[in-house]
């Protein structure tokens, strides 16, 4: 058998027809196309995430060896501490992260809509220049963008130094120091392009004759916006919001530098526990809250848009 099969194999290597015939089998070509990525995703995505879920339900001993006995200790540790529940670090941090992510999303939406609308209606040279100016920060490293705001804010940062220099204020303004405001500005700057591009994609496909028809039929501008433009661009709004909200929720670099240690978002809390203590049980359990809330966000989004609408997927 060995001889004959190696002969066939050599034939296949040599004969073009054989190769074509071999590939022509639907099952084989499906295996060849879908298979490699499947193996990769199972080994390097599904397996690590599943392992993380299981780690959140077991104890890790002093030598960081896993003790395979089911326990809820990691989840209890998230809510450890005295005082009312809402004062526990994890809860406060989670609530704060949701709030910051929500404000950032709304800011991005409000700011991006006019620009996206203009871009969708304009073409030519202006369009190219503007899109270049928007895309360039988008392609620039996230770390660089966060850092550029690190220079702007702070008691002696560029904003305060400029205000002082021109005598507009006598003391550095607290609102331009590091803190929640700085974090929201930094996150808005970082994720704004996602919102813009999502909105642009859906506004670009918008049939403007509908807008004109609505106006012709006597609808006011607000009515047209509410009844025609918004419903038609809803997929863009939802996908843009998701792609701003989710990374803002788990942000680490921006709050790390723009919070000056006074603000603790959930990404920092988890990272600190792992980075300095290698508390993998705690970190995994805390991560589950983020993962679950993201799953819920997407599930809600899919009630209104199909997966195909998400940024042209």
């Amino acid at each position: 058998m060995g001889d004959s099969s190696s002969a066939t194999f050599r034939d296949r290597l040599l004969s073009r027809e054989e190769v074509i015939a071999w590939f022509d089998s639907r099952r084989r070509s499906l295996g060849i196309t879908a298979g490699p990525a499947l193996v990769w995703l199972v080994l390097l995505l599904a397996a690590p995430l599943t392992f993380m879920v299981s780690v959140s339900f077991v104890n890790v001993n002093e030598s960081y060896q896993i003790v395979w006995q089911p326990t809820l200790a990691n989840y209890e540790a998230l809510f450890a501490g005295g005082g009312p529940l809402f004062q526990r670090a994890f809860v406060q941090s989670l609530v704060l992260s949701y709030a910051i992510a929500a404000v950032t999303t709304i800011l991005c939406l409000v700011l991006a809509f006019p620009l996206a609308y203009l871009l969708a209606r304009k073409g030519g040279r202006t369009f190219k220049v503007v899109i270049f100016l928007v895309l360039l920060p988008f392609f620039t490293m996230y770390l660089v963008r966060a850092y550029s705001w690190y220079l702007m804010f702070g008691p002696s940062g560029v904003i305060n130094a400029t205000l002082l220099k021109f005598g507009i204020v006598n003391e550095p303004l607290a609102m331009f120091s590091y803190g929640v405001t700085a974090i929201i500005v930094g996150l808005t700057h970082a994720y704004f392009p996602y919102m813009l591009l999502s909105l642009y994609a859906s506004l670009d496909g918008l049939d403007y004759s509908l807008v004109e028809a609505s106006r012709d039929l006597g609808a006011s501008r607000t009515e047209t916006l509410r009844d025609v433009i918004l419903p038609l661009t809803l997929p863009g709004i939802i996908s843009g919001s998701l792609f701003v909200f989710v990374p803002s929720l788990g942000a680490f670099v921006t709050p790390r530098f723009l919070g000056q240690g006074k603000v603790l978002m959930i990404g920092q809390l988890i990272k600190d526990r792992i980075g300095s203590l290698y508390a993998v049980g705690y970190g995994s359990a805390a991560s589950m809250f983020i993962v679950v809330s993201i799953v819920i966000a997407f599930a809600v989004a899919f009630r209104y848009v199909s997966i195909e609408d998400l940024g042209g997927i």
Partner: peptide
């Protein structure tokens, strides 16, 4: 140390 860290996180997130 766990109690210290928990308290510290509460300070940071307050």
């Amino acid at each position: 140390e766990d109690a210290w860290i928990t308290a510290w996180e509460e300070v940071k997130s307050a």
